[in-house]
Computed example of a mutant assay.
Amino acid sequence: MHHTTLAQMAITALIVALLPLSIAWISKDASRYRKLVWIGVFLTFDLIVFGAFTRLTDSGLGCPDWPGCYGLANPFLAHEEIRAAEALQPTGPVTMVKAWIEMIHRYLAMAIGILIVAMMAVAWYRWKKGRQAAYRPGYPTFLFFFVCLQGAFGAWTVTLKLQPVIVTMHLLLGMGLLALLTWYGGRQDQLLRPASAVVPPARLVPVRRLALASSAVLLVQLFLGGWVSTNYATLACTEFPLCGGKLVPEMDFEHGFHLWRELGKTAAGHYLPFSALTAIHWVHRNFASVVVLVLGWTVVRAWPIAPLRPLARAIAAVLALQALTGVATIYLNYPLLLAVLHNAGAAALVLLLTMLNYRAKFLHDAPAAHR
């Protein structure tokens, strides 16, 4: 790719990033840096939802190279190449609409990368000046390397032609970035507004353990959900709670859960049998009951603790919404809006569980910090 194209893309991403950077700069918040972190959380959540929209509209190869579009900075400049590809295959994978969806996703991702670079730069600068706890540079530096890894998987998603394990890892890393930024935001909140409520540590220990268990269970379900989506197995079962008229349908776990293979193919290069897609869908569907039970019990234990009650209430609401949208996508034959909402609900659970984990830890550690 020509260096002029890279410069044009960098300038576009910087323009996208200037709005959130300006919001943080002119903010009357007691800590502009804290504001910047939470803007990063907000945009990362948006990126995950838009990434789901990109995947669900089959726009992941809207521009079949990376980082540009046919070696150019945007679909306007690649108009001829896109129209030629669209003429050969009118329904995709390359169309003008899909190219724009894919490039908007990339620009938003690059803008978030710029925000994290800004966090890291400010942290190092302020740390060298005053050694303030809010600006310890280790965490934002780790975020920088993490977002670079996420960017690498974004590139491999395109260059390896939507290989399911790569796309699923790209999704999990996006959720991981959301969790890391949320944790960092919680730390900034704690430094700005120390806890006033005192909760006996003995009441918090079981909630902390359950919150960690809930995060682990949710991570497994995120992988399974990503595996369903990247293998296009959402409609492998079109009824609920049965699948193909049976509680336990015919399933091919060996091919369905073989990780390193091409999209729609077995490891040997043959077409993936429908029973493999059924296995992928069925495991995700049934593991959802484990998620509901574990997260539901976490909500029950956290609810009586006043500082944790708002988070418990929000988790309960999102969990119910997830169950509703998950079943509705089956009965309504996979409408796009519901599928995007289901992905947004998963991201919301990641955000809320991270906040619950941090809040429970902070409240548990607060009495020791005051001794």
Results as ranks from 00 to 15, higher is better:
Met1Leu: 08
Thr12Lys: 12
Leu18Gly: 04
Leu21Ser: 07
Leu21Gln: 04
Ser27Met: 00
Lys28His: 12
Tyr33Val: 00
Gly40Leu: 08
Ala52Gln: 06
Thr57Gly: 09
Gly62Pro: 00
Asp65Val: 02
Leu72Gln: 06
Ala73Cys: 09
Asn74Ile: 04
Phe76Asp: 08
Leu77Met: 08
Ala78Trp: 08
Glu80Tyr: 03
Glu80Ile: 03
Leu88Pro: 00
Pro93Thr: 06
Thr95Ser: 08
Thr95Asn: 03
Val97Cys: 02
Lys98Met: 06
Ile104Ser: 09
Leu108Trp: 15
Ile112Ser: 05
Ile116Gly: 06
Val122Phe: 05
Tyr135Glu: 01
Tyr139Lys: 04
Leu149Met: 15
Gln150His: 10
Ala155Val: 07
Leu191Ala: 09
Pro201Asn: 10
Val217Met: 10
Leu222Pro: 00
Glu239Trp: 12
Leu242Tyr: 15
Lys246Tyr: 13
Met251Phe: 12
Trp260Lys: 05
Leu263Gly: 06
Lys265Ala: 07
Ser275Gly: 07
Ser275Arg: 11
His284Gly: 12
Arg285Ser: 04
Arg285Thr: 01
Ser289Leu: 15
Val294Asn: 10
Ala302Asp: 04
Pro304Ser: 09
Arg309His: 04
Ala316Gln: 07
Val318Tyr: 07
Ala320Gln: 11
Ala328Gly: 11
Ile330Asn: 06
Leu332Trp: 15
Tyr334Cys: 13
Leu337Met: 11
Val340Cys: 05
His342Met: 12
Ala346Ser: 13
Leu349Thr: 08
Met355Cys: 13
